[in-house]
Design a protein around this nucleic acid. Sequence first.
DNA 1: ACCTGAACACCGTTCAAGT
DNA 2: ACCTGAACACCGTTCAAGT
Lengths: 251, 251
Amino acid sequence: MPSSESSGGSVWLRPERPPRDRQLTRERIVDVAAAVLDAEGHRGLSMRRVATELGVTAGSLYWYVHTKDDLLELALDRVLAEVRADPGTSDWRDGLAALARSNRAMLLRHRWALSELTVRPNLGPNALALAETGLRLLERAGFVGSDLDAAMAAVNDHVVGAVIAEVAWRDTLARMSGTGSGWDERAAEYLRQIAERHPTLAGRMAATGEIDVERESERRFAFGLGCLLDGLATRCATPFPSSRHRDAGSR
Amino acid sequence: MPSSESSGGSVWLRPERPPRDRQLTRERIVDVAAAVLDAEGHRGLSMRRVATELGVTAGSLYWYVHTKDDLLELALDRVLAEVRADPGTSDWRDGLAALARSNRAMLLRHRWALSELTVRPNLGPNALALAETGLRLLERAGFVGSDLDAAMAAVNDHVVGAVIAEVAWRDTLARMSGTGSGWDERAAEYLRQIAERHPTLAGRMAATGEIDVERESERRFAFGLGCLLDGLATRCATPFPSSRHRDAGSR
DNA sequence: ACCTGAACACCGTTCAAGT
DNA sequence: ACCTGAACACCGTTCAAGT
């Protein structure tokens, strides 16, 4: 029933508001959402927060985004664009390793993206592009059919799983050093119990106490990736496409 | 002992309320929290919900639990108790594979636990016990030092990563079939664009369209696990402890 | 010691109303 | 078309007050 524009009066003096009058864009919204997430994590993100950051009311955002979940989905795909991968790498092992490393680096930069992955399937354009280049590399290695899917999944799973473990580790350390007195006493008692019941674990915990988390995490990541790629190489048609065999972290 | 209910000034008839009068226990609280999480996921869990389920006010819970995060941490460790593992398995590959499978099964039963893992380090008793048996198996395989840690991490990472991917996949399918008309049209258009830009991916998506998700997920899991264990076997002192070599999913 | 009731400071989301 | 303002139905958490 509402005619599209004429509302009585001097319509001609008031031309159609050009699109550039819009204060918001989906892109701008995703921008600040990603920024807030990077700075303060999931806890810091709220519709009202994003809105005020844009000088706008919370309700306005729903003109551009269906729900907060949608916004998170967009933010996830945005950071996926940061992953660099070259589908044309001559050695498929090198290409996959580089893809995995770039993926890991991105997830470490935007740790909130991890919890997004566990909650939401991502079918955004960047996710699809990454899948394509990964599949191409594995296709060149000789994988076909459902083995191709399984191989791609195995590499991605290692990346995601490894970053989750690393972040959890880092958070534990941060929490330990964060809380001041009182923690150490209770922790000491707890560790004593652990040592009693779980000697092997206790030995490892004692050893990793003084280790650089960053270096050790990278070592573990490379170790697991190396195992995986070795296992893949024995299952495909082109185990050694190039003469040079890059070591990805065996002892 | 209904005397506890008699009021009216006769304090001497009313002995000190025994501990068993308490309506709440940390255990009961964690019980219903886990039940709510299983039934309705993260979205369904609130302090008020748990409280009313226990016939109590929300504030009461804070007598037993510091924060909602603490409650989630307790629920996570509770569900980790379901993972079964035998540290005495003769073949370390069999033992590790069984541990990984049991872990995966648990995570699929309690999918909310996944997002917990990404957000919170878990140092509960059950988590530690699982780590201990895993490390023992790998120790028997000949791993020592930081290679022991890396090997353990690699297996766990694969489990976590694989379940995350599987759950995401299942959710996508559920969402697709859930929304009725209108979805298919937009989806078809989207798929057309995918096929144009990402031929390899499109080929795989077409192939996996008619596949049983459950069976295929298990296949992928076993495939990746097999790759990983093969790679581990080439890096340890005891590659083949038993004569029988269980195939864990190579084509 | 254990629990209630009410409050505080937030949420996501909707929607009439304005321009 | 785009945004405001106010409302709705929730949150987690705290805390005086009761028993």
